[in-house]
Amino acid sequence: MLKTETPSAEHAQLDQYPTTELINTLVDDQTNAVKAVRAAAPRLAAAVTAALPRMEAGGRLIYVGAGTSGRLGLLDSVELYPTFSWPHERALALLAGGQQAMFVAVEGAEDDLEQGAADLIATNPTANDVVLLLAASGATPYVLGALRAARAAGALTVGFANNTDSPVAGEAEIGVTLDTGAEIISGSTRLKAGTSQKIALNTFSSALMVRLNKVYGNLMVDLKPTNAKLVLRAVRLTMFATGADESAARAALEQCDFHVKVAIVALSKKTSIDQARALLEAARGSVRQALAA
């Protein structure tokens, strides 16, 4: 039996716990998700290293999953645009059962190996794409179908699973096993198995964006200010990075469509917006290198 499906030997009387003890037990078990991701850190680092040149060459991130895993992949893909200005068309998410499965479970969709392959092929994968394949069991047919189609197309495949020796991790070019063991509520992989996948995806995509010069120091300088909160964040980030007052920071941002990187370089080097853009382009988007030029 898969570890994620094996009834836990602990907390066999969970349904009889007082509510406070029940809450504490569920929370405490989540710490095992962090430990599982920490153990997989070398594999995540290998995935970032392999993905970087493909992204620099114009490749896409394509997330594939079913159920909770698929929804977590879709969430990571969606958040890349406002956080890092990563283009929508370069972060795709394939969910067994289609987009409606984000809100309503589509029973049986995850068992369709051929549909997984067909959905992946429909994205016209290339060798520069990175396909992230998510399955707590590590054997979801829909995900395996997509994995095999991605490999046939020459794309980089990164398989995430919560069981050791799984097909998804074993058949992918880079396998990331998040060994979270049995769940407190037997088989409910929306618990710590899901948490570990969320952490792993956050870690992978954030590290990749750092390597793509989307971060200066630890500042989120390539955000897309799509609402009032993010506009204020852009102003604060510019002020913090340059020492400029709010008026000067806002004025520079208004001249460059609130592109924080450009405003930082323009203010720090006391140059024009056009010159700041040119410096950043020559530095491949690196604020640090543009400031040193």
Rank of each mutant, 00 (worst) to 15 (best):
K3A: 13
T4I: 12
T6K: 09
P7D: 09
H11N: 13
A12F: 09
Q13H: 14
Q13V: 11
L14V: 08
D15A: 11
T19M: 11
E21T: 15
L22D: 01
I23D: 00
I23T: 10
T25K: 11
T31K: 15
N32M: 02
N32C: 00
V37Y: 02
A40I: 13
R43F: 01
A46T: 06
T49V: 13
I62K: 04
Y63L: 10
G67Y: 03
G67T: 04
S69H: 05
S69Q: 04
L72F: 09
L72T: 08
G73I: 02
L75H: 12
L75R: 10
L75M: 12
E79M: 09
L80V: 08
Y81P: 01
Y81V: 14
T83Y: 01
S85M: 02
W86C: 01
E89R: 07
A91M: 08
L95Q: 05
A96S: 14
A96E: 04
A101S: 14
A105R: 09
E107D: 15
E107M: 11
E110V: 07
D112G: 07
Q115E: 12
A118E: 15
D119A: 13
I121E: 14
A122Q: 07
A122M: 03
N124M: 12
P125Y: 11
A127I: 13
D129M: 00
V131G: 01
V131N: 04
L133R: 08
G138P: 08
A139R: 15
T140D: 10
Y142Q: 02
V143N: 04
V143Q: 01
L144R: 14
G145F: 09
L147E: 04
L147R: 02
A152M: 04
A155T: 06
T157R: 01
F160I: 01
E171G: 12
E173Y: 01
E173N: 11
G175Y: 05
G175P: 10
G175M: 08
V176F: 02
V176W: 06
I185N: 06
G187T: 06
T189R: 06
L191K: 02
A193G: 11
S196A: 15
Q197Y: 07
L201A: 11
F204S: 05
S205R: 00
S206D: 12
V210W: 00
N213A: 12
K214Y: 01
V215D: 04
Y216Q: 06
Y216I: 05
Y216G: 04
N218R: 13
L219A: 14
V221G: 03
D222A: 14
L230H: 00
L230I: 05
R233W: 00
A234P: 07
L237F: 07
F240N: 13
A241I: 04
A241S: 12
D245Y: 13
A252K: 07
E254M: 11
E254P: 07
Q255R: 12
C256D: 08
F258N: 06
V260R: 02
K261Y: 00
I264V: 15
V265Y: 01
V265G: 00
S268L: 05
K270M: 08
T271H: 08
T271G: 07
S272Y: 06
I273C: 07
R277P: 00
A278K: 15
A278R: 14
E281H: 15
A282S: 13
G285V: 07
Q289D: 15
A292M: 15
A292G: 10
